[in-house]
Every structure is written in C-alpha cells, then in structure tokens.
C-alpha cells in the first residue's frame, strides 16, 4: 500500500491545466487523446473495447459488441434484475437505487453475471473441447471451495426451467455468430443441440453472452462488468416506467404468501386511553 497518495494506472493519463493541477487539460486512454481524437472519430463500442482491452478493436469486434449490447439491453420486466429495479421505481426510490438493485440481483448465478463468469472462465480453460464441456456441464461444481457464491444449481448457460431453446436466444446466437470475428459463437451454434441433449435443458442467453465475450477476448471478470453494464438500460427504463404507472398497478403479493408455522393472532394491546 502506497503512502505517497498516488493512484497508478496503465489505462489513463491526464495533463493538468497550467493554472489548476486538479483540472485535466487533456485525457488519454491507452495513449489516445480521448476528447481530442477518440470522441470525434470512435464509436461507443470501439471506445468500450479500447478501455477493456487496451487496443483499438477491429470493426468486426466493435460490431459484435454493439449487437451484443442490443441483445442484452433489456431482459424484460419478468427478469429478476429488472423486477428488482421496478421495485425501486414503484416506491419512488432514488433512481440510483433502482440500478443498484438491478446490479445486485443481476449479479447472480441464475441468468446473471456470475453465471456468465463461470462460462467465460470455462471457455478460457477448455476452448472448443467438446468432451471437456460435456464433463464440465455434468459437474459444474467439481472442485468447489467455500465462497460467497454458492454452488451453481444448474448447468451454466442453460435454462433450468426451459423446454425448448427460446427464439430470442436462437436469433441472438445465430446473428452474433455471423458477425463475430471469433470462433466461440460459431462453435456454440454447431454444438448447441448436442450440449442441450447432454444437459437436458435448452441454451440460455447467458451462454450466448459468454461466447461473445470469449470471441472479444475478455476475461471472466471483464465479462461480468460488461454484462452488468449492458443489461442496465432495461432496468432503468422499466424502473422509470413503473414509477409513472404507480403502485396500484404493481403486483401486491401479500395475499399469496402463506406460512407453514403460524402462531395465529395473539391480539392487539388495548390503547384506547390514547383515543387514537
């Protein structure tokens, strides 16, 4: 730990204003002048990939990220992370709290970013080893050690409640494989049915995302960060929408909740003297 109070980075450099050392005159990301050069010339996915990988991406990689961002942008209001954000919106929480709720819930292992992490790490370990993948998917918790993350409860990348692969998943996989400069998405297209048969479950969007991140050359932790970011637009707009719709049009689950261990009504104290 440093006691010189310096921050270290190989990503970002700033040149200060002559008159104020706390205001940047120019900012550089991996050597590129962000506001003088990148801003007028780069697209958003190109800049994102520069920040994550340190290199200006190919047009194909930037296209893949842009299309992946569309595929992931809104999981829809039935999805847990979006529903969590909607719980923020409906109660009038500060807007940031709705996104924090979406990030926390969307970080999980049931369609969330940790499931994507497990898959990207496995891609990095196994690559296109089909038999290796089959062994992994049959026993995804092999070698599990105590952690804040529980053992995963289904084959990562597959929908534990699915019957057939969802059309949006198939459409995303097919299109992204066509535009991808890598081979993971294409491999997943070819072997999807075999892997689904092995797991007894249909492929899920988390597997498509993970293969795309593999094709972009990202690590598991980088994939977590991008996956969480890319899914926030849906959480944001549904939280805002729910606030406008109002609480009367949001599910009130109270009557549907039933106890198995209920002491029953024990009465209410007599406070009649307070004349409430």
């Amino acid at each position: 730990m440093s006691d010189t109070f310096e921050l270290h980075s190989s990503i970002w450099r700033e040149e200060p204003q002559a008159e104020n050392p706390f205001t940047a005159e120019r900012c550089f990301a991996y050597g590129y002048d962000v506001y003088g050069d990148v801003l007028p010339k780069s697209s958003w996915p190109e800049y994102l990939l520069l920040l994550f990988t340190g290199e200006r991406p190919t047009a194909e990689a930037a296209m893949l990220l842009e299309k992946l961002a569309i595929a992931l942008a809104n999981p829809g209001p039935r999805e847990p992370s979006v529903r969590a954000a909607m719980n923020g919106g409906v109660g009038g929480s500060v807007d940031a709290a709705s996104l924090i709720a979406a990030l926390a819930v969307g970080a999980g292992q049931y369609g969330g970013s940790h499931e994507v992490y497990l898959l990207v790490e496995t891609w990095n370990r196994l690559g296109a080893d089909l038999d290796g993948w089959k062994r992994y998917l049959a026993q995804p918790n092999q070698g599990y050690r105590e952690d804040v993350w529980s053992p995963i409860e289904h084959a990562p990348g597959f929908d534990p409640h699915g019957v057939h692969c969802a059309k949006p998943v198939l459409q995303s996989l097919t299109f992204l494989a066509e535009v991808s400069p890598g081979s993971a998405l294409a491999w997943l297209c070819v072997h999807r049915s075999e892997l689904e048969h092995q797991c007894g479950l249909p492929l899920a969007m988390s597997a498509v995302a993970a293969a795309a991140f593999q094709d972009l050359g990202l690590s598991g932790s980088q994939a977590i960060m991008l996956y969480l970011m890319l899914r926030l637009p849906g959480a944001a707009v549904h939280a805002l929408e729910q606030e406008k719709l109002g609480w009367k049009r949001f599910p009130a689950y109270g009557p549907a909740i039933h106890l198995s261990d209920d002491p029953g009504a024990l009465g209410t104290p007599d406070v009649s003297r307070f004349e409430l």
């Binding site: 109070f5 980075s9 190989s10 990503i11 970002w12 200060p16 706390f22 550089f28 050597g31 340190g54």
Partner: peptide, 12 residues
C-alpha cells in the same frame, strides 16, 4: 483530492 500529476501512468 488527487492532482493530475498524482495519477501515475505506466501505459503506452
């Protein structure tokens, strides 16, 4: 607060 010069860069 961190002055620009205390952001120590080691990249390209």
């Amino acid at each position: 607060p961190v002055a620009c010069e205390n952001l120590v860069y080691s990249g390209v």
